[in-house]
Structures are given as structure tokens and as C-alpha cells.
Simulated assay, not measured.
Amino acid sequence: MLIMLTINFVVVTLSVIVHYEFLHLLSVYLPKIRIKTRLKVVFGILGSLAAHIIEVWIFAAAYYGLIQLGTFGNLEGNFTHSILDCAYYSITTYTSLGTGDIQPTGDIRFLAGIEALCGLVLITWSASFMFIEMQKYWKTDDNA
């Protein structure tokens, strides 16, 4: 169980660092780009989505690795043991969509629970960031 807690901590920490770095880069470079406001917002959304996609793949790689080890549980149901199935499961868990066609068993369940919480927090962070950024642009640039 200590190994699983350590893996959870590493995966979540890596995801948070990726997210922070993406949002930091967006906050630094968006104001410097000389384009219309609406395009800055589009770039901000695309950058945020890119961060989320990378984070989903971090979790997918963790699921895939843990399943390959064979001692931490499995994903069962409509699952073919491919990295793409792990990515699919990860995106449904990260976004709390949870379609239910793949279910975790064993210790991997803890990673799934942590991923749902992490996804909620990071998606909310992105929404807050974009709200603040859009307020800056809408106040300073009337010809969007």
C-alpha cells in the first residue's frame, strides 16, 4: 500500500507541476502576443487543454505501467490492455464522466479516485485562470 501511495503522490505531483507550468507560460506570453483579444482567449483555452491532455496521459501511463506489473490490480470490462484503453479510462475518470464500461480493481482503484479529484481541481484551476485572463483582456481591449 505504501508503494501505491507513493505512485499516487508522484503522478499527482507531476500533473500539478505540468499544469502550473502551462498556466504560468500562458500568463507570461499571452499579454506579449500582438493579436486580437479573442485570439488570445483561444490560445489560452488551447494551452489549458494541452495541459489537461498531457495530465490525462500521465495518469494513463501510470495505469498502463501498474497493470503491466500485475500486482496492483487491473481495469476490467470493455478493456483490451492497450495504452489507448488506459487513456480512454483516464479521460473519463479525469473529467468525472465515468461511463462505467471499464472498472478498476485492486489498488488501482485508489489512483482512479485520486485522478477524479485531481481532474476536478485542475479543471477548476483552468477555469479560474481563464476567467481572470479574460477579465484583463476585456477591460483593456475594446476591439476584440
Rank of each mutant, 00 (worst) to 15 (best):
Thr80Trp: 10
Asp85Tyr: 11
Ile102Val: 10
Asn143Asp: 14
Leu23Phe: 04
Thr105Pro: 06
Thr93Gly: 10
Tyr20Arg: 07
Ser48Tyr: 13
Gly44Ser: 12
Ile114Asn: 11
Lys32Pro: 01
Val16Phe: 12
Gly70Tyr: 03
Leu14Phe: 08
Gln103Gly: 05
Asn143His: 11
Met130Gln: 09
Val18Tyr: 05
Arg38Lys: 13
Ala62Gln: 02
Thr71Tyr: 14
Ala51Tyr: 10
Arg38Phe: 14
Ile7Ala: 02
Met134Asn: 12
Phe110Pro: 01
Asn143Gly: 02
Ile67Asn: 09
Ala50Ser: 13
Gly47Val: 10
Leu46His: 11
Thr71Asp: 05
Gln68Glu: 15
Trp125Ile: 00
Met134Leu: 13
Trp138Lys: 09
Ile53Glu: 13
Tyr20Ala: 06
Thr124His: 01
Ile45Thr: 14
Ile108Val: 02
Ile58Met: 12
His81Arg: 04
Thr71Lys: 03
Tyr88Met: 02
Ser128Gln: 05
Lys136Gln: 13
Leu111Trp: 06
Tyr88Leu: 02
Ser126Arg: 09
Lys139Val: 08
Ile132Lys: 15
Gly119Glu: 05
Lys40Leu: 13
Tyr137Gly: 07
Ala127Trp: 05
Ser27Val: 03
Ser128Pro: 06
Val41Ile: 15
Glu21Val: 09
Ala51His: 09
His19Ala: 04
Ile83Gly: 03
Tyr63Cys: 10
Lys136Thr: 10
Ala144Cys: 00
Phe59His: 12
Met130Lys: 01
Val42Thr: 14
Ile108Ser: 00
Phe43Ser: 11
Ala144Ser: 05
Gln103Val: 15
Ala51Val: 06
Phe131Arg: 14
Leu49Asn: 14
Leu84Gln: 07
Thr92Gln: 15
Phe129Leu: 02
Asn74Gly: 04
Glu55Val: 14
Cys86Leu: 03
